[in-house]
């Protein structure tokens, strides 16, 4: 049996009726969830909506979580990722119907290095981007990433391999262009 994280223990307490434990879960998992959604979508408002909706869903289905099946962190990332994909698909449909009502993305960074890595990640295909973000920034195992994205572990490995190769090419290309090498 695996060791429970702090948030898993809080979730068990919440399932037993301790409503204050939910605040603790929110404090612990809001930052990673928001970071993941923001790095994926680069949309602050969308990221806030997704994090809030994830916690609404957690509250509505609090007894669906089974600590034996995995960490709460993976469970919430799974909910957030599904909500995000649904929302982005809906947004794409609206964009086709009413292009002028679709919010324009606003990137607020000024440091050139950050823009470079942001852009390199943004240029990755959606599926590869999700794998890199979950695996690198949130230190989830390949099994956990596979579970969150509902794909086989082999697919996680291959997407990671291709994504890292693309990132290297993108960043090195950029540095050659800017005269670093």
């Amino acid at each position: 049996m695996r060791l429970n994280d702090r948030e898993d223990e809080l979730m068990i307490a919440y399932q037993k009726g301790d409503n204050e434990a939910l605040e603790g879960i929110y404090t612990l998992l809001k930052p990673p969830l928001y970071s993941f959604v923001f790095r994926y979508s680069r949309d602050e408002h969308l990221s806030i909506d997704i994090v809030q909706d994830t916690f609404v869903k957690l509250q509505r289905h609090k007894h669906d979580y089974n600590p034996e099946k995995g960490k709460l962190k993976s469970y919430l990332f799974q909910i957030a990722y599904r909500l995000l994909i649904t929302k982005l698909n809906r947004r794409k449909r609206w964009k086709k119907l009413l292009p002028f009502l679709t919010p324009v993305q606003n990137d607020g960074l000024h440091l050139s290095d950050r823009i470079t890595i942001r852009e390199a990640i943004a240029k990755l295909p959606d599926t590869q981007r999700a794998v890199v973000l979950l695996y690198y920034y949130h230190e989830l195992s390949q099994d956990e990433v596979a579970q969150i994205l509902a794909i086989p572990k082999g697919t996680v490995k291959s997407r990671l391999h291709v994504a890292i190769k693309r990132l290297r090419e993108e960043l090195e290309g950029n540095e050659y262009d800017s005269g670093v090498f």
Binding site: K30, P31, Y34, F38, I117
Partner: peptide
């Protein structure tokens, strides 16, 4: 090192939408 440069500022927002 490049990936580490990508920081995200977490805004303050409530749990309830």
């Amino acid at each position: 090192a490049k990936l580490e440069e990508y920081h995200v500022d977490i805004p303050d927002f409530p749990m309830k939408p």
